[in-house]
Amino acid sequence: MEGLSVVAANLKVFLQPSQSNNLTLAIFRELSALLFKYHDEFDGVLLAYNVHAPENKGRILPGVHPFIAVRLEAKLLVFSPKPDMLLEGKVVKVAEESIHVIVLGFSSAVITDEDIRNEFKYKTKHGQGLYVNRSNKRHVIKAGTMIRFVVKSMNEETLHIYGSLIPANTGSIKILEKSSEHTNTESVTINSTPKKRRSKEQEGVAQITEHGSIVKDAPSHNNYDREIKKPRRS
C-alpha cells in the first residue's frame, strides 16, 4: 500500500508552565492531539509518533504568557494519500451505486459506480450487494473484502477519500495476488492459459488505455500476459 511514510521531524512543543512537573506526559498529550488529523506541515495525517525524550529541558519564553518551548526529535508515521496512489482497505458496504471502504481503520473511502470498471457487475445475493467480475466469477467484492483501489481525490478536512476501481490492477487483493502468483508460475513453466481467461484479461488491459488512467507501479503480471500471448499468435 502506498501513501504511508515514516518521517524524521524536529519539533518544538510549547507547554504551559503548569505542566512542567510532568513534561513527558505533557509532550505526549500535545502530540496525541495531532493524531488522526490532516496537517499541512506534515502534508498528511499523523498516525503515530515516536519521541525521544529531550535531553535538555525546555526554555522559558519571555512574554505575556511564559510558555516552555521544548525541542524534540520525533519519528512520525504519516498517511498522505495522493491522486493515483494505490490504497488498500476493507469494504464495509456495497450498494449498486457505490462501494464503501475503510482504509487503515479510520479513513472512509467511497467508489461510485462511475468509477467501477465495467468488468464488475452488481448483483444481490441473500439480500447483500456484491460486485462480481464478469470474467472471473471468483473475483467478488462484497462487505468484508480487502480491496486495492486508486485514489482520485481526498477531502483533507474530513479525511474522506474518493477512489476508483477502473485500473485493472485494482479489486480484491486476494484475487489480484493469486492471479499474480499464477501468472508468475505460468511464465516459468510456460503453461498454456485457457483462452477465455486470457482474452478477458486482455480486455482489462485494453480498458486501462481506453480510460486513459495512469497506473503507478503496475504489477508485472500484465507484461506476462503479453509475453504468453505472443507465442500463441505465432
Binding site: 450498494a95 457505490s98 472512509s108 467511497v110 477531502n155 479525511l159 474522506h160
Partner: peptide
C-alpha cells in the same frame, strides 16, 4: 447514512 458515507462534507 448514504449521504454521510458518500461525501465527508455531509457527515
Amino acid at each position: 447514512v448514504l449521504l454521510a458515507a458518500s461525501n465527508g462534507k455531509h457527515v
